[in-house]
Write a protein that binds this DNA or RNA. Structure first.
Lengths: 205, 205
DNA sequence: CAAATATCTTTACACTGTCAAGTTAAATCT
DNA sequence: AGATTTAACTTGACAGTGTAAAGATATTTG
């Protein structure tokens, strides 16, 4: 009757609880001061309880990074979907929206974003992370392809287009995330500037 | 007579020795597993010896990051200087060279690069780091200015130009540094692609 | 209902950064 | 120059970390 694959147990569903506790720990302490024992304490279990579920701290953080990757791809996708169908430059607008979703996620969830892209405490070579990472890239690449098709070009003809768009977007996102971490300015003007830059880049591919 | 501000002492010049040991430690262990006691051991001193010179581990790593920032700006500058004076598109070629120097540094010294830009173990709000960081940016901005002047434009007229160039460059550099960390491909073709992308971006500002 | 298995706790260990109190050498001051 | 202050370094201690091993407990399996 209980159709969901419940790991029911002493605790009920510790794996999920640990992931939620880990996210809180990450937000409050940052990647560097993130502590496995702190997570266990938040979840109300002993410090060695996470081991059966995640192995070591890298395993837990990698699992958390995969949660983040899914939300990240989702954020890009829904940002793209929010572009109206009758937009005069629909394809490019969608590509820019992808970029803005990318940047918005980096700024609103800078800790999760940093965990994904620049933490040594995860293992990016884990298969599920490589898969999710390339999935995220594919979202952007698909939109680049749509833009190229406006001029009857293909991805194979323009192998630099998607990396260029990605690099600019990622650079802006890193810049924004760092700004936020260091308490720098992050107002609407900055967002507008980023959008203009993305437009320029979309027009240059 | 001894004109240099020698901190001569028991050890001779422990501050310098610690910085060199710290760089080795960083390269071998990575930012995350970098250990203050490991550095002290390398330098042949007790584990608390670094304290008088650097305070805590953040102080030592911040000092190391400032060493890296200086080399980084130097690498960009000399990469720009290597462009011949009679180059047909000298200004743009220099700007691209700046970017390639940026990327080359990130790829050849990925640990130091990551330390500068994405480690929580340094304190980027330290005055000397903010200074060096903005100095590095100024090198790039100055070259953007030179490119804009080709069309009688000014930095104030094009406030997005320098951030755009920086974002693309930084995005490519992060991508490259990560590739290297994860053992991905990093051949000449990739370098060529990056250079083409930088040219496109330089032409789009 | 017994046996096996997976989850969780407890205990232990090596390691970390940092603080406080000594020790030693260099610099400063009459 | 000799005493005193100051700075560099050592030693010892402490709380905290991750992880491995062994024991307890409940769930699943046979």
């Amino acid at each position: 009757m209980n159709s969901k694959p419940s790991k029911s147990y002493h605790h009920g569903n510790l794996r999920k609880a640990l992931l939620e506790a880990a996210e809180l720990e990450l937000i409050e302490k940052g990647v560097e001061k993130f502590s496995l024992r702190g997570v266990a304490k938040r979840a109300g279990v002993s410090h060695a309880a996470p081991a059966p579920h995640f192995g070591d701290v890298t395993g837990l953080l990698s699992a958390l990074a995969s949660v983040s990757f899914k939300r990240f791809a989702q954020a890009m996708q829904s940002s793209s979907d929010a572009v109206e169908d009758n937009h005069p430059e629909k394809s490019k607008a969608k590509l820019v929206a992808i970029g803005m979703g990318y940047i918005k996620y980096a700024s609103e969830h800078s800790d999760m974003f940093d965990l994904q892209f620049s933490s040594e405490r995860i293992d990016p070579s884990k298969a599920f992370l490589e898969k999710l990472s390339s999935n995220s890239y594919d979202v952007l690449e698909a939109h680049v392809q749509a833009v190229l098709q406006l001029d009857d070009r293909k991805l194979e003809d323009e192998p630099d287009a998607a990396p260029m768009m990605w690099a600019t977007t990622h650079g802006l996102a890193s810049l924004f995330a760092r700004r936020k971490r260091n308490g720098g300015p992050q107002g609407q003007e900055l967002q507008d500037a980023f959008e203009r830059i993305l437009w320029r880049t979309a027009n240059a591919i």
